[in-house]
């Protein structure tokens, strides 16, 4: 007999592992990726593959330079793949390859590994990459095309939110219907166009208990209420709340980016506050800010508040009750 192993209790573990969690997220994003390929063609596939390969390669490179062991396991744990797909879903379909690679570099090295790798990053890596690219390459990042499938050859077009900002509500309602937003026959980033694909993925994650309902519900709810109030005040000027939920990155953010475990609060109460904060900030930026879209900024701002939220929403300890005299 071999010598016995002594380990700390508990001696049995749940079968769920980190990689299972990560690959569940990957599976949940497949509908959105497929829809983007369907609408934007092979260009979309190319961007996705570039981003994923780029993220994994940069991670491996960084770990190698930093002298870490166990590179293989870390690169294959799925987190780099998730980041890669998220970057792709956040890019416009015309993004050049070099820009995708720069995005991967920023996400993995600056936003993730410099902080200490998975689990220690403060900001969502994919969003850091998106915001970095948006600020550095505003032209490339806002060159939208209409989905080629329905409107013949790809032509340059604005996203509904961009159109709302520049041309006003009347033009938007003339151009699109709510069904367009729902199915995704609109301009936008790879992963922003089709609400239905994102909903399928989100429901899968909820079903698999990878994410909990708190963040998506409170984020979309607060966005709905916030934009709804302004819509009630002036229906000619402000778009209706359904429009705000279906367009832009609201659904992508609600299900895939705000729910990133590492950069969101641990407690249920904290998640509610976190989601509500994102919803309100998104609404503020969309209605009154300089950018047409504000989900990524809103999530990043709330990311920075997570430690504070965690501190004030600690779980109530068992046994903290008054003793009856």
């Amino acid at each position: 007999m071999k010598s016995l192993v002594i380990t700390s209790s508990p001696h049995v573990r749940s079968i769920e592992r980190l990689t299972d969690v990560m690959y569940d997220v990957v599976i949940a994003m497949i509908p959105a990726v497929l829809v983007s390929i369907y609408f934007f063609g092979l260009q979309s596939l190319l961007i996705t593959v570039t981003a994923v390969v780029g993220c994994m390669a940069f991670e491996a490179l960084f770990l190698k330079i930093a002298g870490k062991t166990n590179i293989r396991a870390t690169v294959l744990d799925g987190s780099a793949i998730v980041t890669g797909i998220l970057i792709a879903l956040n890019l416009p379909p015309t993004s050049p390859i070099w820009m995708t690679l720069i995005g991967s570099l920023i996400a993995i090295i600056v936003a993730k590994q410099v902080f200490g790798g998975l689990g220690y990053n403060i900001f969502n890596p994919a969003l850091v990459a998106r915001v970095f690219l948006l600020i550095s390459f505003p032209v490339q990042m806002t060159r939208w095309v209409n989905p080629s499938f329905f409107k013949g050859d790809a032509i340059t077009a604005a996203t509904p939110l961009g159109m709302l900002k520049t041309d006003g509500l009347a033009t938007v309602s003339k151009t699109f219907s709510h069904l367009d937003f729902f199915l995704g026959t609109i301009g936008g980033s790879l992963g922003e166009v089709s609400a239905v694909a994102l909903l399928i993925g989100g429901l899968y994650l909820l079903m698999r208990k990878v994410i909990s309902w708190e963040i998506p519900v409170s984020m979309l709810g607060s966005l709905f209420i916030f934009t709804g109030i302004f819509w009630m005040l002036d229906k000619a000027r402000y778009a209706d709340p359904i429009f705000h939920i279906l367009t832009g990155g609201a659904l992508l953010g609600a299900f895939f980016m705000a729910t990133d475990m590492v950069t969101s609060p641990i407690t249920r109460k904290g998640m509610l506050i976190f989601g509500a904060g994102i919803g309100v900030l998104t609404g503020l930026i969309r209605l009154f800010g300089g950018y047409p879209e504000g989900v990524s900024f809103a999530i990043l701002i709330m990311n920075s508040l997570v430690p504070l939220i965690d501190k004030y929403t600690e779980v109530k300890k068992f046994g903290l009750v008054k003793v009856k005299a």
Partner: peptide, 21 residues
């Protein structure tokens, strides 16, 4: 030594939980 300790590799960790080979 008998047994093979697997866990947090520090003396106090092994000592506290009495997981000592």
């Amino acid at each position: 030594r008998s047994g093979q300790y697997q866990g947090i590799a520090s003396c106090s960790a092994a000592q506290i939980a009495n997981l000592i080979d």
